[in-house]
Design a protein around this nucleic acid. Structure first.
Lengths: 361, 361
DNA sequence: TTGAAAGCGCTAACAA
DNA sequence: TTGTTAGCGCTTTCAA
C-alpha cells in the first residue's frame, strides 16, 4: 500500500553523514576512502537496503553493463548451450545478457538488433539470417557487434564460427565408408550460413562416391518430422539432418513408418545437443563446441569494447560423434562391417569421438 | 576508429530546428504536435539514425521497460515454453525480458533476484526454490513480484501455478487402472514446490492400491539416467519421473539395460515438453499449460504495475497425455487390456488426451 | 581524503 | 502548440 520511495544514494549519504560522492566511491570500491568512513557507509547502505539504480548508473557511466543476444529460435537447446558459455564469461565480467529471438523471421532481425543495441553495450548475433543490407545498417551504428555462426565477407563484422563445411565432409566420409551412396539432406533455413556451408560440402561429397539429394526442410522437430516422407521417396540409405532436432523429428517419423534405423536407413544430425545422446537410437552427429563458441564471442566483444578493430575471424573445429543411428548401408550389410555392433552398444549413451574421424578446417 | 558521439535528442532537435521537448513529444506519439512539424522531426530523426538512449529514458520515466525472470535451469525446454508465453505478452506491451538462471542453486536465487529487480520494473520467479527467508527479503523491496509454479502461504506473493497434486493423482490413477502397484517416483529437487505437491499426491495414491516408492533423483537428464538403476532395484512395474527430461534420461538407461518399455516397465513424466512426443517410445506425461502459465504471469505483473494488491492465486489445470511409454503392468498383461496397442500406434507422435483422464483441482 | 557540482539523455511540469 | 527548465540517480572531474 505505502508506496515507499526507493532508497537512493543521497539517502545513504544522509544516513552515513557523508556526501553522495563518498558513497559512490565506497560502492565502487575506490581505495581513496578512509576505512572507517567506508565502513560507516557500507553499514548505512546495508541497513537501508540500498541498491544502485541501474538506469542512473547506465546514464552516468555511459554503459549499461548489458549485452544483447539475438538468436533465431529459443526452442532449440543448441542456443542455450551457446548462451551458457557466453553468459558464464559475461557474468564473470559483471555483465548481464538481454536475449531476443527472431523466431526464424529474418526480416525481423534488423529492428530487434537495433532495439537490443539501444539498451545494451554490444550485441552478439547468433546464427543470424539477417539480410546483408540490414546487417550493414546495424553495423553502421558503429557499436560493438560480434557474429556467431556466420561469416560475412566485405563487412567489418568480427565472427566466430564452426567449420560447418568440414563437419559435413566428415559425416559424408563416415557414411561413404559405411557403403552409403544415396544420401538425402534435410536442408536448413535457406538464409542460414551453416546450412549453406553444409550444402556446399554436400555437393563436393560426390568425391566420396556419394550421390546427394536435398529436401527442403527447416530447423524444427516438426520440420524434420514432416520432411521425412519426401526424403524417403528419394530412397536414400542415409539421411543427414540440418541439425539434431530436425533429426529427432525424422527419427520419430521413421519409427512410425516402421523404417529400421540404422538397418534400413542411417541418420545423422548436427550440433550434438544433450538430447542427441539420449535419442533412440542414440544419434550420430557432428559436435559443435557450443559453449566455446559463446566464450569466444564474449572475448571478441570485450576486445571491441577496448577499441580493437579488424579482429580476425575465429574458426572452431567440429567433431564427428558416431553413435547408433548410423551403420552400414543395407546393400553393404553382407560385407564385413567396418565397426562391429558390440562397439556401439557398450556403456551409457556413448559420446565416443574416434580421433580418426575428427575433422578440421 | 572514429568514435562518433551518439545521436542524442538534442542533435535531432537542432537538425529539425525545434526544441528537445518537441522531439520527445513526437517520438512518444503525443498528439499535440503540428503534423508538419512532427514530420520534420521524424525525418531528421530517421536521417540521423536516432535511437533514444534506454538508460536516460529509464531514469527520466522511472521505469525501465524491462522485467526480470529468474529460473532454475536454462537447459530445460520447459522454461522456454513458459518464457515464450510470457515474452509474447510482454513484448506486445512494449516490455523486454531479462533472464537469469540459478542453475539449481537455491542459495543464489536471492541475490540474483535483487540484481534483476535493480535493473527492471518487476520480477517473475519461475519454479523458485528460494528459501522462504530470502523470498520475504526480496518481497520487502516492495517491488512487483509474481511467482510461477510455487505458492507460499503467509507471504503477499501473487502466484500462478499448475495443480501438480492433481497431475500426480492423474498419473497414478492411470497406472492403477493398468494394474500397476509397484511404482517408483524419481524425485525432483527437494525445494521444488511442484515436487512437494507431487510427492504429497503420491503418498495418497495408496487409495488407488498403489505402493509408492521414492528414489532421490533431481531434474536433469543425467539425474534421470543415473537414478534409474536404484529405481529398478525397487522392482517397480512403473516409474514416474519428476519431469520429462528426467524421464528421457531414465528411458535411455532402461534401453541400455534391455528393459522393455512399456512391456516390462512403464514410465511417465511431467510437463509434456516438445521432445516428449518424439521420444521412443513416445512419452506418457502430464501436460503443463506452459505458455498459458507465462501469459498469466505477465497479466498478474501488469496488475501489480497498476497498483492492485492482494491478487488471488491462479491455479491452472494439467492434463494427462497417454502415449506409448505406459501400458498394462506385466502381471496384468494376460488379462484383457484396457487399451489396445492399435489405439496407440496410430498417427504421428500422438497427443491424445482422453477427456476421462483429464484432471482438475 | 572528502565535498561540490556539472553533466549523462530524456521526460514532464510549467510558461508562454 | 511549442519552448524552457527542473529533475531522474549516479559518476566524475575539480577544488579544497
Amino acid at each position: 500500500m505505502t508506496r515507499t520511495r526507493a532508497v537512493t544514494i543521497s539517502r545513504v549519504a544522509e544516513a552515513a553523514g557523508v556526501s553522495v560522492a563518498t558513497v559512490s566511491r565506497v560502492m565502487n570500491g575506490s581505495a581513496t576512502v578512509a576505512p572507517q568512513l567506508a565502513e560507516r557507509v557500507r553499514e548505512a547502505a546495508a541497513r537501508l537496503g540500498y541498491r544502485p539504480n541501474a538506469s542512473a548508473q547506465g546514464l552516468a557511466r555511459g554503459r549499461t553493463g548489458m549485452i544483447g543476444v539475438l538468436l533465431p529460435d529459443l526452442a532449440n537447446p543448441y542456443f542455450h548451450e551457446v548462451m551458457k558459455g557466453l553468459t558464464a564469461e559475461a557474468v564473470a565480467d559483471g555483465y548481464h545478457t538481454l536475449v531476443a529471438a527472431s523466431d526464424e523471421v529474418p526480416e525481423d532481425e534488423g529492428s530487434l538488433a537495433h532495439e537490443l543495441l539501444r539498451q545494451t553495450d554490444g550485441l552478439v548475433l547468433c546464427s543470424s539470417r539477417m539480410p546483408r543490407h540490414d546487417l550493414s545498417e546495424v553495423l553502421d551504428a558503429g557499436r560493438p557487434v560480434v557474429s556467431v555462426n556466420r561469416q560475412v565477407s566485405g563487412l567489418a563484422l568480427p565472427a566466430v564460427t564452426v567449420d560447418s563445411h568440414a563437419g559435413m565432409l566428415a559425416v559424408c566420409g563416415h557414411l561413404a565408408r559405411q557403403g552409403h551412396r544415396q544420401v538425402t539432406y534435410l536442408s536448413g533455413p535457406p538464409l542460414s550460413w551453416s546450412h549453406r556451408e553444409r550444402r556446399r560440402a554436400l555437393s563436393e561429397s560426390s568425391a566420396f562416391g556419394i550421390d546427394p539429394q536435398t529436401v527442403d526442410c527447416g530447423s524444427t522437430m516438426d520440420d524434420g518430422y514432416r520432411a521425412t516422407d519426401a526424403a524417403l521417396e528419394r530412397r536414400p540409405t542415409a539421411i543427414i539432418a540440418f541439425n539434431d532436432i530436425v533429426a529427432f523429428g525424422a527419427l520419430a517419423r521413421l519409427r512410425e513408418r516402421g523404417v529400421a534405423v540404422p538397418d534400413e536407413v542411417s541418420i545423422a544430425g548436427f550440433d550434438d545437443i544433450a538430447f542427441a545422446a539420449y535419442a533412440s537410437p542414440a544419434l550420430t552427429t557432428v559436435r559443435n563446441p557450443k559453449e566455446q563458441l559463446g566464450r569466444h564471442a564474449w572475448r571478441m566483444l570485450t576486445r571491441l569494447f577496448k577499441g580493437e578493430r579488424g579482429l580476425e575471424p575465429q574458426v572452431l573445429v567440429p567433431e564427428l560423434v558416431v553413435r547408433d543411428s548410423t551403420g552400414p548401408a543395407p546393400a553393404a550389410i553382407a560385407t564385413p562391417r567396418l565397426q562391429g555392433p558390440s562397439a556401439r552398444a557398450a556403456g551409457r549413451p556413448s559420446v565416443r569421438s574416434p580421433r580418426g574421424e575428427a575433422t578440421s578446417s
